[in-house]
Computed example of a mutant assay.
Amino acid sequence: MPLKKCLVTGATGYLGRHVMSRLLNEGYDVLAVGRTAAPQVSVRNGLTYFELDLQDTDAVSEFLAAHKPGHLVHLAWEATPGKFWHSPDNFNWVSASAHLLKNFVEAGGERAMLAGSCAEYKWGAAPLHEERSPRHPKTYYSASKCAFHDMAQVIAKDISVVWGRVFFPYGPDEAAAKLVSHIYSTIKNDEIPMFQIPDRAIDLIHVADVATAFSRVLASDLEGAVNIGSGVAMLPDEIALTCASALGKQDLIPALQKRASEVTASVSVLGDIQRLQSVLNDADIRSFEQGLKSYLESR
Rank of each mutant, 00 (worst) to 15 (best):
L296H: 09
I183K: 01
A38Y: 05
V73I: 14
G171M: 02
R216W: 02
V154C: 04
P69H: 09
I228T: 05
E51P: 03
R132D: 14
Q277T: 15
V154F: 14
A147E: 05
I159L: 04
E191S: 05
L204I: 07
A283Q: 13
T139G: 06
S268Q: 15
I253P: 00
V207I: 15
R275K: 15
L235Q: 11
L52P: 00
K83V: 15
G291Y: 06
A246M: 08
G248T: 04
T186A: 02
A255M: 08
M113Y: 10
V33S: 03
G109S: 06
V105F: 00
V207Q: 04
T80S: 14
Q277S: 13
A126S: 10
A66V: 07
G248S: 13
S220E: 02
L252N: 02
G46S: 10
S133Q: 02
D272G: 12
T264Y: 11
G46L: 05
S266Y: 13
Y170D: 03
S220T: 08
G248Q: 12
F195M: 07
V161A: 11
L75G: 07
M1S: 14
W123Y: 12
V161T: 09
L252F: 03
V267F: 15
H74Y: 06
R165M: 04
H149N: 12
P134S: 13
P193Q: 04
S87R: 10
Y141G: 07
L52A: 08
S142D: 01
R132Q: 14
P2K: 12
W123N: 05
K178V: 03
S215W: 05
G271N: 10
Y295N: 03
G10T: 03
E297H: 14
P134R: 01
L256N: 01
A225L: 08
Q196F: 09
G291S: 06
E131K: 09
I159Y: 01
